[in-house]
Design a protein around this nucleic acid. Structure first.
Lengths: 295, 295
DNA sequence: ACACAAATGATTCAAACGTTGCATTTGTCG
DNA sequence: CGACAAATGCAACGTTTGAATCATTTGTGT
């Protein structure tokens, strides 16, 4: 991480004065400085979803003579960075264990990173795949996650709804959360998220869904979770944390992966749904500026 | 210094079998691996005092299809080296890059893991600390996160409420989300979470809070996010993902770390609050007490 | 000294590069 | 609504790239 990057700061300083396209280009440059040095301008523009000419215009806008000035700068940055590479690695390497000891935040972040890494095990991947496939064939997906798991459940539902999937979030004010289940049929699937301690309401609603013939899938924290016995398929998320409470970050990661697998199953449809959503939000002025979609 | 560089070792192994010109080219490549990635072949040849064609011949001699194969390799090496922790994580996991290729889920999980790792940078840790300190001294914390950021906002609020902190979630049915701000005072703090595309309502409420004299803290995705200008302190969360949509997993990780730092600031109080919560839930039968064992 | 094959240099080519000017769209003011 | 300027997309340009081809040199065995 370069501490003083004058060009970077210049871009940030002039960002607000840029046109939307220039902003998009500038933003990509800010977020991927290495790429600037390593790939051609056209490819960079492609990745930033911007016209090649826009990169040139960005350079001019910044007072440079051409794009090469920008590239040269980031080449220099990268050169400098890789010089002290050995030292850097040594520092990171040695620092990891010791430095983290005195630092709760770093320690925790490392733990989370490792936990998510662990989800790459073949067993987990297989479970993810299986659950995604079941979700794919569902006529409707009821999503249930109460208390701490609300965040995961809601996020899954939100993304699914953007993708145009028939997702129903089992939640609502005044204890009406489970009401939507009255219309559920055996063609539907329920995705339930729950970690210890398991909310009674979650278990009750899950049992009800199972009784109604729904296929129950679950994201939960242990082989001995009560959900395991109620579910057709299960994926396990680590929840242990250095802090007082459980972490739901791995569970959220899982739900995002599931969304991706679902979307990836039918790319055209997903893209279409996203575009429709874009237009909807655009006409409602929901978001502050143009919404550039990534390819 | 690259740990395992197969191409480098191949060059060394075959060095003796090369013609003088090839050796000269090979030697320059070995001694300036970065240059290979950063300059054109012709320029590299110029520096190595060798014909451009010799570089192509070197590639063929090494069994590659063309010079680009060599360049790509050193680009990959440089890419890996330049982003510190992420590189290390990837490295620890061995054949990550290859293994993940055919598998969207694994690829995505690795990306998330690396992104969270990146948050261990000193700059991020410092920002986390600063924000936690401000939150600590707040009389009340208003939490705002709309649309996709709802999950993060809600989770933060939920944990805070368990910890007995005075947290107010700015959300509610029928568009009443911002109403709670009427009672806000300059002693209060607002924590706002928003990533691109930024919801108009979020920006408006944030501005309102700022106008009322609240200290605004934000979790957002870029130096050029509109929130940066409105916030006293900011922490940045990566959101890029292999999928169609942004990831909020790093943002959630950040919010969990903030919660932990806050709780850690006064352990006894946190423990006390948690116990009180436990008793509350016990008397309400919120959670299923026994974990039914399965055989 | 000669012949011959390997190595090297020079030349050429198609593709991709960064840049530019022009047409079109977009947003805004009169 | 029309007009104007800014912003953006598009197509063409001249240049440079990496690779292929051919000519020349070099080194070696007889």
């Amino acid at each position: 991480m370069p501490q003083h990057d004058p060009l970077r700061e210049q871009i940030i300083a002039q960002y607000d004065a840029m046109s939307p396209q220039l902003q998009q280009a500038a933003r990509y440059v800010l977020e991927h400085p290495d790429e600037v040095a390593l790939v051609s301008m056209r490819e960079l523009a492609r990745h930033a979803a911007v016209q090649p000419a826009t990169m040139t215009r960005l350079a001019k806008f910044l007072g440079k003579q051409g794009y090469d000035d920008i590239r040269e700068h980031y080449v220099a940055v990268l050169r400098r960075g890789s010089d002290g590479f050995a030292a850097k690695v040594r520092q990171l390497d040695g620092g990891t264990t010791e430095a983290a000891n005195g630092n709760i935040a770093a320690q925790m972040l490392h733990g989370l990173s490792a936990q998510i890494s662990q989800l790459c095990e073949p067993d987990s991947l297989q479970r993810l795949e299986a659950i995604a496939n079941t979700l794919k064939s569902a006529s409707k997906v009821y999503v249930l996650g109460l208390r701490s798991c609300h965040s995961v459940a809601w996020h899954f539902h939100y993304v699914m709804s953007l993708l145009g999937e028939r997702s129903v979030h089992l939640d609502g004010p005044a204890g009406t959360g489970g009401d939507a289940l009255v219309r559920a049929t055996p063609e539907d699937v329920m995705l339930v998220i729950s970690v210890k301690p398991y909310a009674v309401a979650t278990l009750e609603l899950t049992q009800l869904a199972k009784d109604k013939g729904l296929t129950v899938l679950s994201i939960t924290d242990s082989e001995v979770s009560p959900l395991v016995g109620m579910s057709e398929k299960t994926i396990f998320c680590p929840t242990e944390s250095d802090s007082f409470f459980h972490t739901l970050t791995p569970a959220l990661a899982i739900s995002e992966v599931l969304c991706t697998l679902l979307a990836e199953g039918d790319r055209p449809k997903a893209l279409d749904a996203l575009q429709r959503a874009d237009e909807h939000f655009l006409s409602l002025n929901t978001y502050s500026s143009a919404i550039p979609r990534r390819e």
